[in-house]
Write a protein that binds this DNA or RNA. Structure first.
Lengths: 361, 361
DNA sequence: AAGTGTTATGGAAGCGCTTCCATGAAAATA
DNA sequence: TATTTTCATGGAAGCGCTTCCATAACACTT
């Protein structure tokens, strides 16, 4: 069997307490003893048993992250922030990918197992009311990212303000007939972004028309995906016409915009000539397709989430904090108009979305 | 403090053994006793202590996945496969993202801690020789994905064959001056894909020219990234000219191809008119930019990896197995020529890469 | 009635650690 | 030299489980 501290103790001719102390850099061990023990540790290539340590010390050094649809680029980039920080701090990160809402509860339950994790990161979903008390009861640190509940720490994005700025930009470019492609209103970001859209319109004296808001997805996921975006754009194009033709659209996320742009191209609608597009997130891809979008500091949100969790562990009694990020408008080509220099690329790419069937240029 | 089985036992008026048996669905408990105990479990909202269980039962139900640069879409898609399977089987997945090679060893060491994980998935990196023995010694199941070592199970992709097919396709379209943009030759996939490239050329009686192979990245990561692809393409375009102008290029991965295409567009080189492109992976994006590429079954590779790990746990003595996937050519528009219908999209998109400065079509 | 199974149960032992307490030796003080 | 303080150390207890063994209770057999 594996080497235990008992083996080490016997081999080094000391007690198990001493061995443990050597391993944990406890001060009260003589230099010689420590050297002797560590030599044995090395010789027998001893490996501590993680769970025995954790059982005895009551710390797990592990956190879990519960994330919906984590192949969504937005989450990946946030997750990267979490992971980098976790590595830096020596924490293990258990990844729970949620594909349907029920799973979220399953993973919450799992995270609640006493001694399983030191804390939980919960992303972009409505935190189930029924778990609020459970977390409070056992005092398990929890941080909500891109979500909100008054009882817990949260990291948010000013969706409303961001959306307003996005739509304002379109208005500034002269658009009046501005549609929105949104995700499921079950999600808070979708609701908030729509509110921002509505506000910007009102501000400019443009009437909000609910028939200009397109939500699709047929219940599949939460609507923040390429297919939903594609479907919505299809509908938009089919329904938009006549003198009140929609000339610009605000899309609730880059991923949707990807699908939407593809559909537009397939239907011969040119972007930005026929339709200006602004969306939300600034995932890596957005740059590639020259999408104008509202940037969220995803990596930073991820690492901050972990920091907040640690702070919470240190001081469980502190009142819940909320950190809000204000998204930043990144102007690229998809909105047309007076294009200001791309804020990411030093030189502008020449990638265009052209509706021609064959060669162009 | 938290509720333990002792509390349950006292409360239900039974012994701890009986409680444990109830919780674990052991057969030899009477129906009434079980009901009585489970009622108490519910009433006290008992949560088992994960690490105590694990310490006593010697099973962790956890595996770790060591993945380089996991924001790379290729890995994400593989990881999704792993995660889905893990969720299905009730395993916890610890994610170790590696940003530089040293970290890999750190995470290997960590995974080796006795009792920490039941098995390890190691992705796309050279498995360090110095850890071979350690894994064998403690008999920790290990599966290599997109990597190989004779001592362990592995899941591979026939990189050579895939590359050959990719280049053959270009040759079939009439190209003779075919360059390659590769990643660091320190990685096995890069070496194998280059060999496939060379083979296809030889097969067609075309001389291999090392000045037609472009590798860049300046040591940053392993070269499988957008920036490296962009840099290589820049060099290719600058160096290619005269009568032996390169008319097609095989790029070692989609991610690199993204950067390369961007650079081409910026330099006014049209794809596919001026330069045909075929690459490798078929990440989700490839469809979006109409990239012809060799598809790897990423999700399947991920879930198979976990299955293999389980098989290995069951039978530690079985000889190492190797499963190889043959990538499949997906023809889209980036290679020009006689375009066959896209195998993913029912109808072809119209997204084009046009080198024009402004509107086109 | 005595013997043989069968089933349900209690609880000790043990998983491999950390931590605390007691102890003995050495150093510092009077 | 006698006494206190400090330091290093050994090892028991305990973390919360699973599992095994012993036992009691009961139903069958002959």
């Amino acid at each position: 069997m594996a080497v235990t501290i008992y083996d080490l103790a016997k081999e080094a001719g000391v007690g198990i307490g001493t061995v443990s102390r050597c391993l944990n850099n406890h001060p009260s061990v003589s230099v010689e003893t420590r050297a002797k023990v560590l030599a044995v540790v090395k010789r027998l290539s001893y490996q501590p048993h993680a769970y025995a340590q954790r059982l005895a010390s009551k710390k797990t050094n592990t956190i879990s992250a519960i994330i919906p649809y984590f192949t969504n680029y937005f989450f990946i980039q946030v997750l990267q922030g979490v992971q980098d920080k976790a590595g830096e701090l020596g924490f293990d990160l258990i990844l729970y990918g949620v594909n349907d809402p029920q799973q979220a509860e399953y993973y919450l339950r799992r995270s609640l197992h006493r001694g399983h994790v030191d804390g939980v990161l919960f992303f972009s979903m409505k935190f189930p009311e029924s778990y609020v008390q459970k977390f409070q009861q056992i005092n398990l640190p929890l941080v909500l990212v891109d979500a909100y509940h008054p009882a817990f720490d949260s990291i948010r994005v000013k969706n409303r303000e961001g959306a307003t700025e996005a739509v304002r930009h379109l208005i500034k470019l002269g658009h009046r007939n501005i549609a929105m492609i949104n995700a499921s209103l079950d999600t808070q970001p979708a609701r908030e972004r729509m509110e921002g859209y509505r506000l910007a319109l009102e501000e400019a004296g443009i009437a909000f028309r609910s028939d200009r808001v397109f939500i699709s997805g047929g219940g599949k996921q939460d609507g923040f995906n390429r297919e939903a975006g594609k479907a919505s754009m299809g509908e938009l194009i089919r329904r938009s016409g006549g003198r009140e033709k929609v000339s610009a659209v605000f899309i609730a996320s880059d991923v949707q915009a990807m699908g939407a742009m593809q559909e537009a191209a397939e239907l011969g609608v040119r972007i930005p000539e026929d339709l200006a597009v602004v969306s939300f997130d600034d995932i890596e891809l957005a740059q590639h397709v020259q999408l104008t979008t509202m940037r969220q500091p995803m990596h930073e949100m991820g690492s901050l989430a972990l920091e907040k969790l640690l702070a919470r562990m240190k001081d469980p009694a502190a009142p819940p904090t909320v950190t809000s990020f204000l998204p930043e408008l990144i102007v690229r080509k998809s909105c047309g108009g007076d294009i200001t220099p791309d804020l990411i690329l030093p030189s502008l790419g020449r990638i265009e979305l052209a509706p021609t069937g064959g060669e162009s240029g």
